[in-house]
Design a protein around this nucleic acid. Sequence first.
DNA 1: TTAGGTTGCTAAATCGTATTAGCGGTGCGA
DNA 2: TCGCACCGCTAATACGATTTAGCAACCTAA
Lengths: 352, 352
Amino acid sequence: MSPRRVTLADVAKAAGVSPTTASLVLSGRGREMRISEEVEQRVLKAADESQYRPNAVSVGLRTGTTRTIGFVSDTVATSRLAGDMIKGALEAARDRGVMLFIGETEGDPELERRLLQAMHDRQVDGIVLASMYTRTIKVPKEITASPAVLLNALSRQPAALPSILPDEVEAGRAAARVLLEAGHRDGIHLIGAGPRARDLPPGGAAAVERLAGIREVLKEAGVKIAGAPLSADWQPEYGLEATRAILEAGRPRALICFNDRIAFGAYQALGEYGLRVPEDVSVVAFDDHPLASWMRPKLTTVALPHYELGRKAVDVLFTEIRHHRAGAARETGVHRVPMPLRERESVAPPGP
Amino acid sequence: MSPRRVTLADVAKAAGVSPTTASLVLSGRGREMRISEEVEQRVLKAADESQYRPNAVSVGLRTGTTRTIGFVSDTVATSRLAGDMIKGALEAARDRGVMLFIGETEGDPELERRLLQAMHDRQVDGIVLASMYTRTIKVPKEITASPAVLLNALSRQPAALPSILPDEVEAGRAAARVLLEAGHRDGIHLIGAGPRARDLPPGGAAAVERLAGIREVLKEAGVKIAGAPLSADWQPEYGLEATRAILEAGRPRALICFNDRIAFGAYQALGEYGLRVPEDVSVVAFDDHPLASWMRPKLTTVALPHYELGRKAVDVLFTEIRHHRAGAARETGVHRVPMPLRERESVAPPGP
DNA sequence: TTAGGTTGCTAAATCGTATTAGCGGTGCGA
DNA sequence: TCGCACCGCTAATACGATTTAGCAACCTAA
């Protein structure tokens, strides 16, 4: 059926040299090993004509490096965002001629263990362990079998692995600033967390940090948070109800929604009450879900840089791999990736 | 740093037998090769105690099969849907103890070629070539190096590879039926394609088939399509404008939107005109984007079964691989995956 | 007594490459 | 004339498994 692949031995035979010579020439060590110009040309020609490409499995066995990395995450499908993260990782890997294994753990530690093993069995050069929403995780010990980095996650154990995270605190600051700069000082409500630093929904580190950034900037400006409904899950449904509650109680001038889905629900509630965005109420959110630019008016939001996170993770992983090969110790720093503000149409100066 | 992996030779030594014997026992051929019960136990014990796991790279080199398949698509990040497809593929692969390489071509044939080569260099057992929206593609000749299937795509060349596709015609029928069953007979407008069979947006096979299904059922019922604006891209913006155009011209009773994003735009236009869904206007769409259940009222839509498509692709790929190993010829059938109707809140009997 | 069969294991080859060690020939200096 | 360095290449080994061929010991039957 499929014709047998051409091997190094085939090339060597065609060029009339030994496999050793062919290997030397093709790995660029020809000069160094004093192979003559003429023989070198013969080998190159033979390789080219037969379309020789080295068998990566064999190379992997011989050298121990497979030009392959693993990307294991808790879930790949939850959101479009996961896709962007993978896309970033994929492109960074491609730039280096490296392939990506992917695996999904669904939060099951046993599955995670088996996946990491399966990847190590295949001799991956390194592993990106990703979480789809920012949180602290227990790093499985299997991971130590190769260089690794944490993406969107922090290790519970201290000094375990390098982490790549979005800069959520700065994002919080940006969200607060965009309102301040529009002239808002009163009637600013939070939906998703707050108003106090300890008012947080369960799970997820994003809330803490976004809230910290928001509080810091507002405090510096001497602005008080008007209020925040009890925080629950971050779904549109909650946004809808929380906003209704706020509207029952009074007249907000600005909403900081802890993600776009909440803002989506908030829009619906504001619509019900006949209030217009941004003339009556300004809205800022986080994530930059595709939804954000479909909403009308388009939502101003602080974007999660999924693509860049994915790229950065692979970049850091490769410096880890280099260090590892050089026998250096493991790094353990935290790398923060900026969250860019997407200014659209949902923020305006407060009305009279 | 990382302790050396334990190899078969280590196990053999620990058990006091030859590597041959150890291999035989561990591959379950011990009985067949008349290895004594006692030796067998010794080997098993040694393997277990040392936590031996075979090096998959070595096995790959020796046997030619790597328990690895490639998933290459034009894009992984475009939508949440891509993620679901990968998730389905991933789980089907996991069920078989197989790992997944992923790659993204961005529609670039050169990149596609290189990706397929990179995968074949790594001796993948087979390849899923996926498109994120249904269409006919030119199958690159590199793909013939291993078993392969097409996912969400049809080959331009005849009889090339098996294809896995959503059953779009039946989906069209389902959308039409849900309106008929609610009692609609007049004022049914299409947005995204039609009304005539040749009124299609550029690119994409889904439009043709959905339209065919819709037309078939409506025709059988003796119902005429009231109209359809010129079809353009399938974005919310177009849905908004197309619906406005319809509303300018008269009073629709039902809308069949060719995807959910169009329906999202349609909702906005209906809102502008003070019309209520579903009391004044019923809306059906296709895809079941997450958006569909966030909209109010929740959108009735015919779902693209991405997860199942992914699973099915891997299933079919594995029967291909089996056939290939048995020396059988390539299959070339088209496998249709049903598109389930998600009945929600956007369809009601026509008002007076 | 010996050919032949069975039992229970192992030696050796193999997959395709990288790499170390070495080989035959030439030129040169002492 | 011998020893040595250098040149240009190749033989042999290793990576970690699978698999084929075969071996020693014992038993059986003619």
